[in-house]
Design a protein around this nucleic acid. Structure first.
Lengths: 338, 338
DNA sequence: CAGGTTGATGTAACTAGTTACATGATTCAA
DNA sequence: TTGAATCATGTAACTAGTTACATCAACCTG
């Protein structure tokens, strides 16, 4: 029946009244406890407890102009590579006292814009996006809001947003180079959808069949274990035999490996296999998957530092190039000459 | 040199002055455009564009008392089972116009409290946690803030927070029951750390060796592919032979499968294998992994509806029990009698 | 043409914090 | 004992929106 029970939630004024002090004193107890006399502080703290007072984040934000969180737009959470990226991102953002809001785009630029709008609506101070191909409305939104935004998983110093990522062309070049160096000339390339995906397209562009005197056959499929299985079936059924399979993602490679096992095709004895990503599973599969390690953890940390710095200093950070490197395990083997 | 360039960001008053209207009119253009005359609206919209005005989320939140996002505390993102859960959670929250803030706890109750505090600080309207074992400080925080909180991956109607999850005991019971039904009496159980993990402990409690006249050997390891590999090595090296391996997680089972392949132990011919989770990889591995499907996507959706409803109506939702079911694939086989 | 209704817009008071400045009370040295 | 310095606290004005209510003009009806 008292006032306290009618009110939904106690505020600073309620606490001040209850403790018999001013709002400024309560605010001080919250933000600079040393500035108030212990006796007063105790009175206030007691009032805070009895009224179950919890300061409003919104009211704080309105004064500081800070909401203390940034948004990340990722294509999916279902690929361990993004999970690893997000884990590192979230962890490093915490060092800057920033939280992470995650949104899935399902690789759809339209969904991406919608979610970006939502993120702005709830007050994101910065954005992390994947790649450099987006709906113009997203660029417009970023521009209008002057929103610090980092484009990841891609490297392009000339892009209008700073990129933090690796050179996708170099990654596939590194892979093809290795297989060609092992003597492979007939290679199947398994890749994800090209639509709306500049990362995949860049990886395609990184392949230089002529320079390696290699014949490439391309198999497009969804980036998932099942996609890899399907691609492997198609490869086995194709008229032209290959000696090696290059997958643009370790998830695909794992699916391929399973499907080959199912068909009693031995890796690497009958067919060589190489991936890109370097997931946890790749290190421990049998055989171990030779792949190109993408430094996504470092990408997460670097991106976190980049947005945080941008937000703090208002100065746009420089693009960062992270270098992928080969990790050799047992899945390919050299072709015997002749 | 003008005022506009000195000010960091335009606000409602600036727009109103620039358009020669009152703040109320600008606010109406934003929230109820039909209530203002088209001519006035255009004036305001033009001012909004030229001043690059973006409404402050914080100021909105302060009036509505809503921040429109909830926080999720998950042990890790590195396990596909959580990724799937979060994807469903995020997707369904969007239907309630809520965003998702993700925080990693690394299975550490102390980190969990810290991150929960951060989430409250930035204004989360609700919380999603894993399991029912938490630092008392977390319960205190939830209680003090009257924060709608759902405990997931667990079922306990008597818990002080509503749970949305499956019966972990039933899940392992289902698995052991299947293996025993196939005639297995010597079984290795591979599980994650018991410390701070009520889900794992409940799964342990679900095993009834006596009822199944079975001998169980336990192998504790980290929940990761590598953990599975190590457990498999230990199992192969153990003095007492087993005919089946039961893993409390498909991630572990996959590691076990790889390690067995490495040691030329055939599954299921030489050794039967069963998991719990039902990941994408489990459906397509060779052999396919017989497992217990945990309905984490539905858990995500149900949790989203539960918090959203709680926030909306102020009424605590009822706990929800989701039923796991077996999915039979090729990894175990019946023991020949004798 | 008076009177009522409707529609568009403005005024000012809210929301819940922070903070510059003012005030008043001690404390200490001269 | 006086004056200055220091400390604790209060007042009121900010932050950037929303919104109840007031105002006023235009339109319609009798």
């Amino acid at each position: 029946m008292t006032d306290d029970q009618n009110k939904k939630r106690a505020n600073l004024r309620d606490v001040a009244k209850s403790a018999g002090v001013s709002v400024a004193t309560v605010s001080r107890v919250l933000n600079a406890p040393d500035a108030v006399r212990p006796k007063t502080r105790e009175k206030v703290e007691s009032a805070i407890r009895t009224l179950r007072f919890v300061p409003s984040a919104a009211a704080r934000a309105i004064n500081s102009g800070r909401t203390r969180f940034v948004g990340a737009l990722v294509p999916t959470l279902d690929n361990a590579i993004f999970a690893r990226f997000l884990a590192a991102l979230e962890h490093k953002l915490l060092d800057h006292r920033l939280s992470l809001v995650v949104a899935n785009t399902y690789n759809d630029p339209a969904i991406e814009v919608e979610k970006a709008k939502t993120l702005v609506d709830v007050g994101a101070e910065g954005l992390i996006v994947s790649g450099i191909t987006h709906d113009p409305a997203l660029d417009d939104l970023i521009e209008r809001c002057q929103l610090p935004t980092i484009a990841t998983s891609y490297h392009d110093p000339s892009y209008h947003l700073p990129t933090v990522g690796y050179d996708n062309m170099a990654a596939t070049a590194l892979a093809l180079d290795y297989l060609a160096g092992q003597g492979h000339r007939d290679i199947a390339v398994v890749h994800g959808p090209l639509a709306n995906n500049d990362r995949t397209r860049a990886r395609m562009a990184g392949l230089d069949p002529v320079g390696h005197a290699a014949q490439l056959q391309f198999f497009e499929t969804e980036i998932a274990i099942l996609g890899g299985c399907r691609a492997a079936s198609a490869i086995l059924a194709a008229p032209r035999r290959v000696s090696a399979i290059l997958c643009f993602s370790d998830v695909l490679a794992l699916g391929v490996l399973f499907e080959l096992q199912r068909n009693a095709v031995r890796v690497p004895d009958d067919l060589s296999l190489m991936g890109i990503d370097d997931l946890a599973a790749s290190a421990h599969s049998e055989p171990g998957l030779t792949t190109v390690h993408l430094p996504v953890s470092r990408m997460g940390e670097t991106s976190a530092n980049a947005v945080a710095g941008w937000i703090e200093t208002q100065e746009r950070p420089a693009p960062v190039l992270l270098v992928p490197d080969r990790v050799i395990r047992g899945s390919p083997r050299a072709v015997e000459p002749g």
